[in-house]
Write a protein that binds this DNA or RNA. Structure first.
Length: 432
RNA sequence: GUGGCCGUAGCUCAUCAGGUAGAGCCCCGGAUUGUGACUCCGGAGGUGGCGGGUUCAAGACCCGUCGGCCACCCCA
């Protein structure tokens, strides 16, 4: 155990894993771009008040999970616990909300929570936000976009879409009263957490994992019956659009979201394959947030997906080759100072001619044998070998390192003159 | 914040009535002088998370603490 460790819940990602992240990030970026979403790069730190106002003062996130500290001028700052508030703030500040906008962002978020599978203190999200369109076709677009993404990532079979409408804040508050009134009759039968939530956040009782509580909820008032007309209409339009587009979904009237800014449509993509933290992507509409944060009243919808969870799911579903990838295509062996010099300049010009080829030159000296061992370990298809003989003859030895023919037959090494090298090397690398 | 399980070489793990630790993998070197993979030989590497306690003696027992995993909570 070394003296210095990463902060609890904050992990390092090495090449063996980061290549999976790159695949995921590239796929997401391409997909979002194909719908006309543009990337915004936002600060990781914001004034604390942005989050307390935006996310809600009573939520667990701002109440006990934020990394909050004073700047040197005594202003309270916080590491962002989610991306929407900052994105909205940025859009207002930039004055771009006079017309509809589609944005996406990616990066680390911070929440002081107990780490477990699929949950870290520093985690990463990619989020998409659409501003300025109040109609449910925008909700549908975001959901279709995410559905397409799961298909492209090869995880569509492992995820399920749940949707709900939580209505306007007025209808929600009517429903909340009805729910509280109902549950108050059975307070003593509720689990401890739910008894607490009855005071703090009654709607949260709906997705309690407690079986007894869920049984009580069987006969509880149904949120859908309390929806205002507009929310109900929009929701049925959304459902119709999803059906027309062939996106399967489950209406879950118990689905509520944790952040205060949501209204009307909410949705979650969930999986049963990741243990307790099964939500890989979630979002909804937040029509009041822009105004709440000081902008002109502008509707918004968005979602955020958890990168760690997606990487886990990708691995779980075998959608990605998780075996370790070679670090090199070509490994360059050179023994002796003269050989090293010739190799160095030759390989530099090779890189100019073959920019996509990964040419790793051996460093640190050593015998032919030890250098060859490194060549083997690197996973390279070909070793280029320079020694005294090659230098004096003006040649280089091209040695195929792996079985490359269907027959399993090995290719013999050959030597070639330096001007021939690009052609010979290309040929050696393209035999598959 | 709560609970369960866990913490021995870089990695995966073992050992023992409590008597001052071992394997496999990895790494390094070698097996006829310039060449990897298989095999063989040799080598390096551990204050047994940390701190207390019990004991003649603790990695093994007890307490604390830190860390990890999973779950609750919460949420992406």
């Amino acid at each position: 155990m070394s003296k210095y460790r990463s902060v609890r819940g904050m992990v390092d990602i090495f090449p063996e894993d980061s290549r999976h992240w790159q695949f995921l990030e590239n796929t997401v970026a391409e997909t979002l771009a194909s719908y006309g979403y543009g990337e915004v790069r936002l600060p990781i730190v914001e004034y604390t008040e942005l989050f307390t106002r935006g996310i809600g003062k009573a939520t667990d996130i701002v109440e006990k999970e934020m990394y909050t500290f004073d700047d040197r001028n005594a202003e309270s700052l916080s590491l962002r616990p989610e991306g929407t508030a900052g994105c909205v703030r940025a859009a207002i500040q930039a004055g771009v909300l006079n017309t509809p906008q589609r944005y996406w962002y990616a990066g680390p978020m911070f929440r002081y929570e107990r780490p477990q599978k699929g949950r870290q203190r520093q985690f990463h999200q990619i989020g998409a936000e659409a501003f300025g369109v109040a109609s449910p076709d925008m909700d549908a677009e975001l959901i279709l976009m995410s559905a397409r993404l799961w298909r492209r990532l090869g995880i569509a079979q492992g995820v399920e879409l749940q949707i709900n409408s939580i209505g306007s804040s007025e209808s929600r508050s009517r429903y909340r009263s009805a729910l509280v009134e109902y549950l108050n009759q059975y307070v003593d039968q509720l689990d401890e957490d739910s008894q607490r939530r009855l005071q703090s956040n009654p709607l949260r009782i709906l997705d309690s994992k407690n079986a007894g509580t869920q049984a009580l909820l069987e006969n509880a008032p149904d949120m859908s019956e309390f929806l205002d007309a507009e929310s109900a209409d929009d929701f049925s339009i959304l459902c119709a659009l999803l059906t027309a587009a062939g996106v399967a979904y489950t209406v879950n009237t118990r689905l509520v979201r944790g952040l205060d800014y949501y209204n009307k449509t909410v949705f979650e993509w969930v999986t049963t394959r990741l243990g307790a933290q099964g939500t890989i992507c979630a979002g909804g509409r937040y029509d009041g947030l822009v105004k709440q944060l000081g902008g002109r009243d502008t509707p918004g919808v968005g979602f955020a997906m958890g990168m760690e969870r997606l990487v886990l799911l990708l691995a779980e579903m075998g959608s990605m080759d998780m075996s370790s990838a070679p670090v090199a295509d070509v490994y360059v062996v050179a023994v002796g100072d003269d050989a090293y010099k010739v190799a160095l300049s030759t390989v530099e010009s090779l890189r100019s001619e073959m920019p996509r080829c990964r040419l790793v030159q051996h460093t640190g000296g050593g015998s032919f044998k030890s250098q060859m061992k490194k060549a083997d370990k690197s996973g390279a298809q070909v070793a280029l070998i320079w020694g005294e003989d090659e230098v004096s003859a003006g040649t280089v030895t091209v040695k195929p390192m792996r079985v490359e023919k269907e027959s399993g037959e090995r290719l013999a090494q050959q030597s070639c003159l330096l001007p021939e090298l690009p052609a010979v090397l290309s040929a050696a690398l393209t035999i598959d």
